[in-house]
């Protein structure tokens, strides 16, 4: 029981971070970005490259793990670099594609274009990195036993997994402070509410849109690195998470940051608890069952405002 809870929180962390980006771009750019999953994949792979680079430059080719973790500080640096590069990638895609369509197209045009962008991004990635799985580290980690086996089945968790959960909490808190305490954050919320009035008040909406891409893509990259850290880095990593991301964002009430976080953890936990009930092969379908159930009860999601 407890073990499933821990596994669900780890998966939920990745989904939550990705879904927050999705919900931000939805509320400010007003379209569902099906390319969000690819930003996770790109983030994970760019971190592989950045890690190789950082390790080669500083450590003479070896990464020395810090403390109980499977990786060294180099991976954290690589994650920051990957987040920056992924943000740059998102800005590039916006400049090449979405910006032009925003000027005239309807929301559905943007959604379909994001499908196309996702395909292009995934194929480009496979072309560059190949299809074999990658890892940040091959260190074997000893899981810590937090709860003995005779209490609710016990709980073992690796330090990496604990870190992923903790860092997700920190990132979400940071985003919350950004949105509520800074001018940029308030400008983003104002633009989401009413772009014309935001301009009247002096908000440079184009700058807010850029900031939104940067934040959304950087969060996706961090989610991708986390997914790679607790699992494998594969070209399908983000695509397979896309539907859980949407389920989480819709579940929370699209546009709501806290909703997306909560939705992420609910979907993660539901997936994890479904394994002993329905079997591992139906794990992916669980996100939908939860989504359907909640939407039947609360059509606007948990925190969604009435349309």
């Amino acid at each position: 029981m407890l073990q499933l809870l821990a596994d669900g929180l780890v998966v939920g962390s990745v989904i939550a971070l990705g879904a927050v980006g999705l919900t931000l771009t939805y509320s400010i750019l007003r379209f569902a970005n099906f390319g969000q999953g690819e930003f996770l994949t790109w983030g994970a792979y760019l971190a592989v490259t950045a890690l190789g680079f950082v390790v080669a430059v500083t450590g003479g080719g070896v990464m020395q793990p810090i403390g109980p973790f499977s990786f060294g500080w180099e991976l954290l640096v690589a994650m920051v670099i990957a987040a920056a590069l992924t943000a740059g990638l998102a800005l590039l895609v916006d400049w090449l594609l979405f910006q032009r369509l925003r000027a005239r197209g309807a929301a559905i045009t943007l959604v379909i274009a994001s499908f196309g962008a996702a395909l292009a991004l995934r194929n480009l990635l496979q072309f560059l990195y190949g299809t074999l799985p990658e890892y940040y580290t091959r260190e074997i980690q000893i899981a810590i036993r937090l709860v003995p086996r005779d209490v609710l089945g016990g709980l073992r968790i690796t330090p990496d997994q604990l870190l992923v959960i903790g860092m997700t909490g920190a990132v979400v808190l940071g985003l919350h402070l950004l949105l509520t305490r800074t001018t940029l954050g308030r400008a983003m919320r104002a633009t989401a509410m009413n772009p014309a009035l935001a301009r009247v008040a002096g908000v440079d909406v184009a700058a807010v849109i850029r900031a939104t891409w940067i934040i959304g893509a950087a969060l996706a990259a961090v989610a991708g690195v986390f997914a790679g850290l607790v699992g494998q880095i594969r070209p399908g990593l983000g695509f397979e998470l896309l539907l859980p991301l949407f389920a989480a964002a819709i579940l929370g009430g699209i546009g709501s940051v806290w909703g997306a976080v909560l939705g992420g953890f609910i979907v993660g936990l539901a997936e994890s608890f479904s394994v002993p009930i329905f079997g591992a092969e139906y794990r992916a379908a669980t996100a939908f069952l939860v989504l359907i159930a909640i939407l039947l009860l609360r059509p606007n999601g948990l925190f969604g405002e009435k349309p």
Partner: peptide, 13 residues
């Protein structure tokens, strides 16, 4: 801005 508090409306402006 209905989603911002009264104070935030003024602070932003």
């Amino acid at each position: 801005f209905a989603n911002l508090s009264v104070l935030e409306n003024l602070q932003l402006a």
